[in-house]
Design a protein around this nucleic acid. Structure first.
Lengths: 195, 195
DNA sequence: CGCGACGTTGATTTGCCTCAACGATTGTGG
DNA sequence: CCACAATCGTTGAGGCAAATCAACGTCGCG
């Protein structure tokens, strides 16, 4: 079995252990895909047609505003799930981009296969429920930070929460994620070196 | 059957229709509860022990920072679900408050009953998966707004998205939700009257 | 009636942005 | 393999968005 599938099955097993039949089904319906740096997993206007598990590498999800400025909504590194739920479920054109920041390998399942998987193996309803609940908690904490903390506090919490990400991702991208300019992030970092 | 349960069952049926056995089970495990204005459904330090469906009324979920200031994370009116997922699943003390802003009626299920419901009736894994996915989409859009739009734009989008909420909730509370001061919200509103 | 929550206004301050400029690094095509 | 472009991080001057602080009128409610 391709080693990629091992990391996916490990991810599922963290919540409710799969039977060997279910593991087999996972290998059947998920397919491997590779992305080059700057390759697009999703572009504005496309309809998001698959649920994606990142095996290795790193992606950013962002929207582009009317001034052409990018705003990073989330990052996804290995062992993470990423997709545009709104586009996926409503089957409408996405307003978002998902772009590889490193050469990356993913496993994808398409819409119809996922619906059939839910019906054939109820455990996946449960596993995907828990996956999205975990992501929901992260979003809720992030919302609380953005409405209550200064940019400086938010940057420190980001570094504390994702120390490995901070080393892999350019500060420009982190600034976009925090909702501040790269210049201002640079000033925050300088200020903290002196202390 | 208590009319409260009708609105809950309608909510479930919107996604995947319940059988009469499942409807019966819902009536068995969910219990009605009433809250006065300013009554607490959850307080900091409590462990969140139930998943709550709002039948009527309105709640705010908020955190209190080190300066004693409240920050509204979300509102929940009738036909909405509310809970602190982090506290509920990790069974740890919550950092949040959930407080009734109007006299309110809810239906609640406690932790163990929910776990049993998931196991006995797989459809609830699916329904609750979809419920949380919808809430996830809302959070994602909100994050995008907070990192990309000005306070004025965010206020207008809030009013457009929730015109009925804007009439029921004091501006002080909306300001807290938007992450701005009541004074500044007042100035935004004044400016738009003139135009 | 009197108190507390609410909404408003103005003066001042501050956090963060814009714009411009500059080296250092990375990447890429010839 | 080099040359050149693009990306990245940094710095400073100036400006704007939003916070702070203080004051005041209104309203609903106990």
């Amino acid at each position: 079995m391709d080693i990629s599938y091992t990391s996916l099955i490990d991810n599922f097993n963290r919540y409710f252990k799969l039977t060997s039949a279910e593991e087999q089904e996972v290998c059947n319906v998920f397919y491997v895909r590779h992305y080059k740096r700057r390759g697009f997993l999703l572009q504005e206007g496309d309809t998001c047609k698959h649920y994606t598990f990142v095996v290795s590498g790193c992606f950013k999800m962002y929207a582009v505003d009317q001034n052409g400025k990018e705003h990073n909504i989330q990052f996804a590194v290995e062992d993470n799930w990423i997709m545009d739920f709104q586009s996926f479920y409503e089957e409408t054109p996405s307003k978002l981009y998902i772009e590889a920041m490193e050469p990356s390998t993913v496993l994808q399942i398409n819409h119809n296969d996922l619906l059939q998987l839910y019906t054939a193996h109820h455990k996946f309803d449960r596993n995907f429920r828990i996956i999205i609940e975990q992501k929901y908690i992260q979003f809720q904490n992030r919302i609380l930070e953005t409405i209550s903390a200064t940019a400086e506090e938010r940057y420190h919490r980001f570094v504390d929460a994702y120390p490995n990400l901070q080393q892999r991702i350019p500060n420009t991208q982190i600034a976009s994620y925090l909702g501040i300019t790269p210049e201002f992030l640079s000033k925050i970092r300088k200020k903290n070196l002196r202390q």
